[in-house]
Amino acid sequence: MSTGAVALGAERVSREFGGVQALKDVSFAVGEAEIVGLIGPNGAGKTTVLNAITGVDTAFSGRITFRGQDVSRVPAPVRARLGMARTFQRASLFPSMSCFENVAVAALAAGLSQTEARRRAEEAVERVGAGAVAQRLAAEVPLGTQRLVEIARAIVRRPTLMVLDEPLSGLEEAEVERVCRVIQELNAAGLAFLWVEHNTRAVLAISHRVIVLDLGRKIFDGGVDQVGEAKEVLDAYLG
């Protein structure tokens, strides 16, 4: 549950791509230990927001703050070191490594010793339920499994904010439930989540709050129980 302290703040974030206004003055906050769902139709600007937050893109205007610090111009790897972790809409594992190695290399990158990295990687892989494929090459496992491994790779660093881009797409029903449960468990342990997902049922089921984007603007920000009644949201999805 939200404790009131702010983990992540976005203030008037705008981004233009050669004339296309992908984001216009988007502001919101994610509390520590909060799960925030970010939804919206295709092309609404969801991935663009996540890229601005994690530093994949630094050509936006506006401000991103992370645990009280302005990180707007801080490059992606440094933001990762500050405690952000993310997954990508197109699952991006390291294809020449095994699933286990994908996770272990992230643990090593967090500065852990070999043995500690191995132990934590095993734990993370088990946690997402990818233990059975741990030794297989990442490029060879099904897409759904790749997403699970990507989540394991993100959590192995023990981040304080997780940014997920459509983590459930391509997953089977059982895997969806597993990922939702993992999100809730980690959240209970104090980890904040900002996640983009088209599976609205899952978003509404486990998020504490929902933000809706449409055509680069924020059109809703509030509790999961109110989103279904908001007129703008209905218009955006239906009209």
Partner: peptide, 14 residues
């Protein structure tokens, strides 16, 4: 190897 495989993912792990 991580960087060669995927620059974006490598940056995301710091």
């Amino acid at each position: 190897r991580a960087i060669r495989d995927s620059e974006a993912a490598a940056e995301s792990i710091g």
